[in-house]
Computed example of a mutant assay.
Amino acid sequence: MIDHFSAHPDADGTRPLDHLTSGRVALVHEWFGATGGSENVFRQISNLLPDAERFVLWKDHDAVEPNLRESWLAQTPLRRTKAGALPLMPLVWRTLSRERFDLVISSSHAFAHTVRLGSAEHTRYLSYVHSPARYIWSPNFDGRGSNPLLALPRRVLQTVDVRLSRHVHGYAANSEEVRARIARYWRRDAVVINPPVDVEYFAAAPAADQSQSRDYLLGVGRWIPYKNFDLIIQIAEAARLPVVIAGSGPEETALRRAAERARVAVTFEVRPSKERLRRLYWGARALLFPVHEDFGIIPVEAQACGTPVVGLRRGGLLETVDNGETGFLVDSVDPHSFVPLVHRLPELSPERIQAHAAGFSEQQFAARMTGWIAEARR
């Protein structure tokens, strides 16, 4: 056993993993985009293991991230189409490098957990899972891969996904929701380590916004169908409150058309900066989040600002929202079912909401990750 991966905790409860004196570590991630929750997790893991070699399928041209080793897939036109590259991903993860490593940690939401480097039998493989590939295992969540013509390819890829991951020694899931999927699809257990959220940044109110009246509702995220931004506009309309829609995505034209028909003011904030997003959170009466997410970092960011969340009683919100204390959860997607809860928002304490969000901090993530890695090495 190589016990140098275990270490005594620091004063803040984390174990320093960056002082390794022997043993090679590799970190692998799917494709690396400019922004995203999974990319942030990969960065945080990288901070814990700064001497590790880092591999990705490819890096988007607008992604500013140093020292990433791209796969051969990055040299092909397939880097521009995730759907086209998907069938090749298991092969890429098995032909990535012939180098030998003592520890390999993957950040996986497609096939990264199937990675195998070199041929050393003593290599320890760990995987932090954002979700088993949704477009393969649960396409009904967001529609990707739900075409009936793709049913047979999905079954083939499911078989490949399970078979090529038998060598993984330990899994961590980003939520109880994802842990249940890992058990259902892969027949494996996992520990739950919620992803890191920069709660300290969002909890610090912008000076000019200390006395915000919180007079609008807010929707934040990618403008794609399963995120239900059309429903957010309908909820605001039913509640007779203005709404701000922040983000970007292919649904922008359709959403702007819906906004023109709405009987309330709908304002669009396209690609807001982190600072601007914090101001939007602090100025909102509530974040509307009527979507089934694996975890959902955005609701935690909102709560760090003392802003309650009104969303669906599904997925990650069951873990990130304390129903009746830091927000309200709804079973129905009928926009009118949200209205009574929107009117109850003054009952909630911003201080209580912020305190709840603190449990999802980057420091908490670091402590849990280092503990999991050290335990898995024993």
Rank of each mutant, 00 (worst) to 15 (best):
M1Q: 03
G324N: 09
H336N: 06
P225Q: 06
P272L: 09
E53Y: 00
E30L: 01
A207D: 15
L86H: 02
D102M: 03
N228C: 13
E251T: 08
T159I: 02
G23S: 01
V41C: 10
M1F: 02
E53N: 06
R263F: 09
Y125W: 03
N40Q: 15
A205M: 05
E99L: 02
G23W: 04
A258G: 04
S119V: 00
E325I: 13
V243L: 05
P87D: 07
A190H: 09
L329H: 14
G311R: 14
L312Y: 08
T81Y: 11
V56P: 00
V115A: 14
A262H: 12
E65S: 04
Q234R: 11
D142Q: 12
W223S: 11
D51M: 04
L318C: 06
V25I: 15
R154T: 03
G306E: 11
A190P: 02
A151Y: 13
R154I: 01
A74R: 06
A172I: 05
L86Y: 02
G359F: 08
I245D: 03
E362Y: 04
D334K: 15
R378N: 11
P50E: 03
H109S: 14
V333Y: 14
S97E: 11
A246D: 06
L157V: 03
I193F: 07
A207L: 12
W31G: 01
L27D: 04
I233Q: 03
F229W: 12
T21P: 00
L255Q: 04
A358N: 10
F268E: 08
Q212N: 09
T320I: 01
S46C: 10
L73A: 03
D161W: 12
D230S: 13
Q44P: 00
L345T: 11
N174R: 12
V199N: 07
P9G: 02
F202S: 07
L126S: 02
Q303S: 04
A120W: 07
A34H: 14
A302D: 09
P290I: 01
A259Y: 14
V192W: 09
D3Q: 03
H19G: 04
L88F: 15
Y281V: 10
P139L: 10
E269I: 05
V266G: 04
I235C: 01
L318Y: 07
V291K: 00
A120D: 15
E269P: 07
A302E: 10
G13I: 05
K59R: 14
R261P: 03
L49F: 15
V333C: 13
P335C: 03
T159W: 10
P350D: 11
G315E: 08
D18V: 01
V291F: 00
L88D: 05
A286S: 05
A357V: 15
W282M: 07
L341Q: 00
T307V: 13
A239W: 04
V300W: 06
V300E: 04
P250F: 03
T35R: 15
L48I: 07
R15K: 13
L280Y: 12
S127N: 06
A302H: 10
R279D: 14
R222T: 15
A236H: 01
D142V: 07
P340D: 00
S6Q: 11
F360N: 08
H169P: 01
D102F: 02
G315F: 09
A63P: 11
E269D: 12
A367H: 07
A173G: 06
Y125I: 05
W372A: 13
A258K: 15
L150V: 08
R352C: 06
A246K: 11
L88G: 05
S165N: 05
N228H: 15
